[in-house]
Design a protein around this nucleic acid. Structure first.
Lengths: 206, 206
DNA sequence: ACCTGAACACCGTTCAAGT
DNA sequence: ACCTGAACACCGTTCAAGT
């Protein structure tokens, strides 16, 4: 055989290996304790190697956060498709999908909304992923208004309110603030739906 | 005179000096870049001195966050007093007071809600400050329900929704996500009131 | 009691050098 | 092109020692 194992050079996809290792370490030890050197070691590569694939530590963290926003966007789009004629349901389900994600990967949510990252001053990839997710949510809110279900308020204001609620509640969830109140999947669904109900009530016309 | 200046020993209130220096550095360079050594240097003291007053870096950061929660609580109580017979106004004004604080000291808000801190696993002081702030908000929501203004939902659910919205919106504010939309005090007030309006609408009985 | 200075084990980042 | 190893300037934390 011509091709031999090259122990020095890596498997051709070091970038993704690093991201996976970073996510695992993030889950384990939290945002603050995440170190690039440890990520490198876990991937079996020298501590300088990641710099071939990420400009700096922030760039790696941003890439991880971007996956979260893509997931949020995906949840919105799925909900919009599945409940095509029920804007209220679209909003509730999109929110619930995100909350489930938040319990699965709390560390990523911390990254997305936790201020470790400044969405005001970040790379183009992350910026774009966040904008796309926001646009998806805005579309769902827009559906509700066009159908005459919601009041005639600024769509942007309504979207901002919904986004803030998701933002805030997901962080409370991952921050362990809620404790026993959402200790099971069933309880989480109940709590999420209760909040969605109030939020929705706020959007409806009177 | 018997009393002479003692350049080695500090002014008797190193703890507060450290907190002030930390807050200034926080404003300047963000949460991530805050270092205990730099705080010590800015205070004119050795890098080991802070350990006389704080168990570790986290303890100092938590003490700073606690001041934010006290402020939030204070805003709620002021609003409750000033608009004693107008629960809706209480909620709006408490929220606005906090948003103004968020623009004044964004770094502190980052600390409070940004996940640098885990309210689930933090010192007793911070825990207590956060709980007290939450209780103040709950009281305002309770006022609205007792007066018959709000729907007959769980007060906890309603408080959680309001808290999440404040939580989320304040972080978007400090994260620079909103940009020109809230570039002036007047715009901020408009945006804050728009969101409060929607939220309030959600709490009202139909 | 309160603070210092040296020490330790870590960081992120850079850069010449190897294949 | 992709990775290594040494180097640099920083961290947080500990601890004997000073006043």
């Amino acid at each position: 055989m011509k091709k031999t194992v090259r122990p020095a050079y890596h498997h051709g996809d070091l970038r993704n290996s690093l991201l996976a290792a970073a996510e695992a370490l993030l889950m384990e030890k939290g945002v603050a304790a995440l170190s690039l050197r440890e990520v490198a070691k876990a991937t079996g590569v020298s501590h300088a190697a990641p710099y071939r694939h990420f400009r700096d530590k922030a760039a790696l963290v941003e890439a991880l956060a971007a996956t979260g926003f893509k997931r949020l966007q995906h949840g919105c789009e799925q909900a919009a498709l599945r409940h095509a004629n029920d804007p209220a349901r679209q909003l509730t389900e999109a929110g619930m999908a995100y909350l489930l994600f938040a319990t699965e990967k709390p560390a990523i949510v911390h990254l997305m909304f936790g201020g470790s990252i400044s969405l005001g001053a970040c790379g183009a990839d992350l910026q774009q992923a966040a904008d796309a997710a926001y646009a998806s949510l805005a579309r769902i809110v827009g559906n509700g208004q066009q159908s005459g279900l919601y009041q005639q308020a600024d769509v942007m204001d309504m979207t901002l309110t919904a986004w803030s609620a998701v933002y805030g509640f997901s962080l409370m969830l991952t921050g362990g603030l809620l404790g026993k109140r959402v200790s099971t999947r069933a309880k989480l669904r109940l709590q999420g739906e209760a909040i969605a109900q109030i939020l929705l009530n706020g959007l409806l016309r009177r």
